[in-house]
Design a protein around this nucleic acid. Structure first.
Lengths: 189, 189
DNA sequence: TTAAAACATTGATCTACATCAAAAAATCAG
DNA sequence: CTGATTTTTTGATGTAGATCAATGTTTTAA
């Protein structure tokens, strides 16, 4: 149950057994059905999730209720509505289980408590933030420099599991193109 | 000389006089002429800059040498090629002085040394990363949800100094639209 | 097992903004 | 100050990808 999470942490920071046990003690399991919404709109992000099994999508809502997917979180990913988690603002990014999903979560309070208590956790969070920043930056860059076909090819190369595992509809949304456009460009490759 | 930087730091983290002096001791002044390139291509980002006076632009290069501006850094901003600073990869984001500019810089080595030595500096960096992440996320969101006119209006509202202080050419680039399109949409507002 | 729902494809049309070209205005260097 | 460069504006044309509509296909649930 906690093995994947343990591995994830120990691969990133040098942590003693004692520290690791302390950290893990704050994580609680949570099982979600397919399409279940995780966390409620209007509130701030109160938890950070680790995906043991299954898949989440994090998205925000454009005008007229149109969903825009920001990222997916598969097995062995951490995920939260990070802007809200950082600022304590009400959620503008929603999280939904795409498949039946098994999570471990830590509350925002406990997370921040650990940051103050364990320098190694602060380091772990630093690493998380750095990666999140880099990913965001590359994604922004892909929108600015690449057309739809090039973005699709890049996704296929960098994250083939997204294309293989998820329906076209979600892939198109993530690439910020219409389903129709994705269908057409795939037939031309 | 170090007053603005002192204020910037003390506004963000609770730091003792002693700690502050230690931190400041690692920062060295640097003066740049208008249009001067800061740091050299091919190398990794070796410094983090603080702008005392003037203005920097951070940009990357698209195909055929076309510049794309990622952000500006005015007085009292920290700036570096953050992806390279994080990963130690060769620079893909370049920094150039838009005006005659006075900087203070800390080397990457000293920066990381301070991270390990001073928990308060780790906290300061956490805060910097969080803000960088939030800014990036909002910028990405603006490209996905807004058209050119709406992006311009948002910029005018959130960062009027960018529009007032910089030539149209740079503003258009930052908004990721052509100069012509910016000129046209301005005449329609 | 089958009707219903969700998803994918294909075609026709439309639009925001790019690009190219040239004139007009502003800024700069000698 | 003045010619030269840079920046901005205006016009004409082109295009990637959106949207709408219809049809075909797969998945789901009872």
């Amino acid at each position: 149950m906690y093995e994947q999470l343990s591995n994830f942490i120990t691969q990133r920071v040098a942590v003693s057994d004692e520290q690791l046990q302390l950290i893990l003690s704050y994580f609680k399991p949570l099982t979600c059905k397919k399409n279940e919404l995780i966390g409620s709109a209007g509130e701030m992000a109160k938890r950070m999730y680790f995906v043991n099994k299954g898949c989440l999508k994090v998205y925000f809502i454009k005008e007229q209720g149109i969903e825009v997917i920001r990222r997916f979180a598969f097995e062995n990913y951490f995920s939260t509505s990070l802007v809200s988690f950082i600022n304590g603002d009400p959620l503008k990014e929603y999280t939904q289980a795409i498949e039946a999903t098994e999570l471990l979560y830590i509350s925002r309070n406990d997370f921040y408590y650990l940051l103050d208590k364990l320098p190694v956790w602060e380091k772990f969070y630093r690493n998380y933030l750095e990666q999140a920043y880099v990913n965001n930056t590359l994604r922004l860059q892909s929108f600015i420099t690449l057309d739809a076909t090039e973005r699709y090819k890049l996704l296929l190369k960098e994250s083939p599991h997204i294309v293989q595992r998820l329906p076209n509809r979600l892939v198109a949304n993530y690439l910020n193109i219409s389903q129709e456009a994705l269908s057409r460009l795939k037939s031309k490759i």
